Simulated assay, not measured.
Amino acid sequence: MKHLYVDPRKEEAPTRERKAHLTCLPKAKETKLHPTRPGGETASLFFVGTATTILEWEGMRVMTDPNFLHAGDHVSLGPGISAERITNPAVDLQDLPRIDAVLLSHYHGDHFDQKVEESLRRDIPIITTLHAKSCLQSKGQESFSEVHDLESFQSLMLDIETGSIRAGKKPGIKVTGMPGKHVKPGLLSTANNLLKAVPPSNGWMIELGYRSASDSESFENSYRIYISGDTLMVDELKEIHERYKDQSIDLMLIHLGGTTLPSPAVPLLMVTMDAKQGVELVQLIKPDVTIPIHYDDYNVFASPLSDFKTAVDEAELSSKVVYLDRKDEYKFKV
């Protein structure tokens, strides 16, 4: 297993992605708790918009798929394909507190936009795909220096220095790459491999836990979060169930929206799960709680959140799903 050590105390101040005086996330518009067992919350997930969330626990902050464009801004989603953002993020990038690391599911403008690419400090740790790593490190003097790629089921220990040691143990975050596919196998996949229009995509398994302060290889999981990333309901996802069927998955962040290219009006290719596939994934993974994200921020989404809510109700899974609007947070117990 790879190890990535991060000491936020050595971060220069001010950095390009934050103002020096900011020390905490903005106050949430609404706080959601576990639907049936609230109490004892020690961690939070703040929803910025699209697939951008900020996980905060034990003094550590990890951001997923940073996208901070505003309504009316455009991103490229492949040769000749652009998408317009139709919402605003819950917070602007420059108004964030310190971010310790970034999980980037894939190198697409709606997950890592041009303003983010210009603004993030070059040495921020980024965990991503091999394709995204090659893109982020091919920019000459503007290349990102701390990019780490994970293949499916390959793990990395994110060891963030917090100064928090209790009973000889310190907190850590284990990140494992999960399979995901924008394009199902077949003729379209073959064509995409040639055209390289839609990039490879990862999901993630994030484990919050503790390890011995004297043994970097030890790790005891206390809370497990699965992030689907941009994927369709493909056979590769069944291996996640097989590998974790005897282990609890406490929370799932599921990328929905039925992203359709080049647009919902010309539906040639769907590259993320719609409502039906989303419910199928909930039934496969069986997480304790599911939070849908990535569902309405761009004009390429063809399957609105209301479709997912209806499908969840019909599958009698409502007690297992928490819905967040931008600037809402979910607090949970680790």
Rank of each mutant, 00 (worst) to 15 (best):
K2T: 13
Y5F: 03
V6H: 04
E11Y: 14
K19H: 14
A28P: 02
T31K: 06
K32T: 07
L33G: 04
L33K: 15
E41Y: 06
V48G: 03
V48D: 12
A51F: 04
T53S: 15
E56N: 15
M60Q: 13
M60V: 01
M63D: 06
F68G: 04
L69R: 06
H70N: 11
A71H: 09
G72S: 04
V75S: 03
G78S: 03
I81T: 07
S82I: 14
R85S: 03
N88T: 12
P89G: 03
V91N: 06
L93K: 03
R98V: 14
D113K: 12
E118L: 01
E118G: 02
R122M: 05
I124Y: 06
H131V: 07
K133L: 14
E142D: 15
E161N: 08
I165A: 08
R166K: 13
A167K: 09
I173Y: 01
H182T: 10
L187A: 11
L187K: 12
L187H: 07
A191D: 08
N192Q: 06
L194D: 09
L195G: 04
K196V: 11
S201C: 12
G203H: 05
M205F: 13
Y210Q: 14
A213T: 11
S214R: 06
S218A: 15
S218D: 12
N221P: 12
N221V: 12
Y223A: 13
L237W: 02
E242V: 04
K245N: 00
D250V: 01
H255F: 12
G258T: 10
G258V: 08
P264A: 14
V266T: 11
A275H: 10
K276P: 00
E280N: 08
I285L: 09
I291K: 01
D296H: 08
D296V: 02
N299R: 07
N299Q: 03
S303M: 04
L305S: 05
S306H: 08
D307P: 00
F308I: 05
D313W: 01
K320H: 14
K320D: 00
V321F: 00
E329H: 00
Y330S: 11
